[in-house]
Design a protein around this nucleic acid. Structure first.
Lengths: 344, 344
DNA sequence: TTGTACGCGTTATCAA
DNA sequence: TTGATAACGCGTACAA
């Protein structure tokens, strides 16, 4: 079942079939109809492999994320797929498990050949890996492991958003705000930037920074959030609020606080970061930072397609920072409070 | 940069390069080395489009799910990707949004041309759509919308698992067990089967079935679970337990119970279905059915690859039912209780 | 063990 | 407005 068959059936040349299929405008209406009928009768579909071979494109873009079982990345993938679909391309998802080796492998692996470009969200890479990012295909970076890398870059307002989240806790009168999820010794990366925003907010409010309030957590999962929260409580430091550097951590912290029968937000208020859907349904519902996921996805796809469509133009690498907002829910406002989006 | 270039560089024929690339065994060691060096020096990669065109295969399999932002499907996708990776194939995810029209479209759409087969998890299709499933490419069905369809089928033990979940609630002395998520007038589909299991368990225990306890919910999201729970409470029927037909519904129900300050499990015990990661961290942690997700994923990929590898053999269509277990957590055992996996 | 030559289904060029 | 024909890059008989 090829264009030949359709052409034979419609009594035209193969090229005419191709023209019809590709929406070439200068075709006599009667010819077009004939061809379309033949296509319908035969149930013909173009062979994508042949088209790709000829065009030198696949119509597929890659999306590399740590893992889909992390709700933030599942929701991000959802958004990227939708954005890509609107623009007529298909997304091929790769999971790296946030393992450095696998993150590097993604850049050169077999699957790259399937795709015209890559939206890449590394978690384990560090500044020492900047060179690896100098790939010869279109790529858009997500997140903030690497700055000034040789690629377009879409990122969140980590510092400002963290500052606003912390400011929200401060505005409620909290002064002993713990952080869950810090990465010691890291200077780039979401952890470092969000802690930086946290410290900036403390400074704004004239509240001294207390290192004892900073809880480390390598992986940003619920489990590590729960453990870190437990550790902070066991340490006996005074705490009246918690800033989870992402929602999974905050939800883990909530889990521990619940297990220990600590009143949230009565005794300890909690805020997260990401606004995954789950935060609107946890008990209590979780205040968090809404990072503009849809915007990030759409922008990333647009930047990538721009590179794909004009591979030779060397436009300077762009860096786009998405908008954010603070969504305050029960975990800071109190049980029964209606959620509210805070003005910036 | 093609095999020709590599061949020229290595001083061999293009065919020899092809042999090396494809691991053909009868190659002189020195030749292989020469070719490999040329490949490395030139940074050559095979052109997947050309290979696919020639082979008539893509090495890609499709996975159609409602949406990745539903944790169950995100986790399922994760498992399928891993299983596929172990077997050397790549997964292309499609989202249908659980919209019937889009679910049908997936079966015939452009993207089918990218893939060698499809793992298909429809949610909106009904028995009237069985015919649409008679596709001419390898397909494995997930879930239970359609039985006896013309395809391999991997499914959960819906009836038995629901029966066991209900039996667990009964064993705790609960007698007024509400259901959240029923679909009126449906006779196939997870909802119908799980309600059937629920009723079987009631019967086993000699507890009369009360239709007033059955709460409808079209979509199985947290939001609809929350609404349905609210409706049941507003109706004023006596309730001492809730069976959410999936975890999202149960978590939504938990949300409502928390909002109304109902003690769980003191006043009302809750159990869900799916064992998504979130259930281990909710407050209280949620008892649920562990449906053997990994097994489902691995089995589906195996069945699909078997069809792909031997397209002409017409093996009868298989139906595989995955194992399950009940994971009891705080929402039935009480706060602070350690999770336990119940024997069947 | 290696090379030659053809064809996979499309699209692009150019002529008609 | 349409058609003939040459690539696109690779894998596979078949020959050497």
């Amino acid at each position: 079942m090829t264009m030949h068959d359709v052409a034979a059936r419609a009594g035209v040349s193969i090229k005419t079939v191709s023209n019809v299929v590709n929406g070439y405008p200068y075709i006599r209406e009667s010819t077009r109809t004939k061809v379309e009928e033949a296509i319908a009768e035969l149930g013909y579909h173009v062979n994508v492999s042949a088209r790709n071979l000829r065009r030198g494109r696949t119509g597929l873009i890659g999306l590399a994320v740590p893992e889909l079982s992390l709700p933030y990345f599942a929701e991000l993938a959802d958004s990227v797929i939708r954005a890509a679909e609107e623009r007529g391309v298909t997304v091929l998802i790769e999971q790296t498990g946030a393992v450095r080796e696998r993150e590097l492998e993604v850049l050169t692996g077999q699957r790259r050949m399937f795709t015209d470009g890559l939206i890449y969200s590394p978690l384990a890479l560090g500044p020492e890996d900047v060179d690896a990012l100098g790939v010869d295909y279109p790529m858009v970076l997500l997140g903030e492991r690497i700055f000034g890398g040789p690629a377009d870059h879409v990122t969140m307002s980590n510092v400002e958003a963290a500052r606003a989240a912390t400011a929200h806790l401060l505005s409620l009168g909290r002064r002993r705000i713990a952080v869950v999820g810090a990465h010691a010794g890291e200077s780039v990366g979401s952890a470092a930037l969000r802690v930086q925003g946290y410290r900036a907010a403390l400074e704004d409010a004239g509240v001294p920074f207390d290192p004892a309030l900073v809880g480390e957590a390598g992986l940003w999962h619920r489990a590590t959030g729960a453990e870190t929260m437990a550790r902070l409580l066991d340490d006996g430091v005074e705490i009246d609020a918690v800033f989870g550097l992402n929602d999974a951590l905050a939800l883990g912290a909530l889990h521990t606080l619940h297990a220990r029968r600590v009143d949230v937000p009565g005794t300890i208020a909690v805020i997260g970061f990401d606004d995954v859907e789950e935060t609107a349904y946890s008990s209590p519902t979780l205040s968090t930072v809404h990072p503009g996921r849809e915007q990030i996805a759409a922008t990333a796809v647009d930047l990538l397609l721009a590179r794909i469509d004009a591979p030779d133009v060397d436009r300077p690498f762009q860096q786009v920072v998405a908008d954010f907002s603070i969504v305050a829910r029960e975990s800071t406002l109190g049980q029964g409070a209606a959620p509210q989006v805070l003005p910036r």
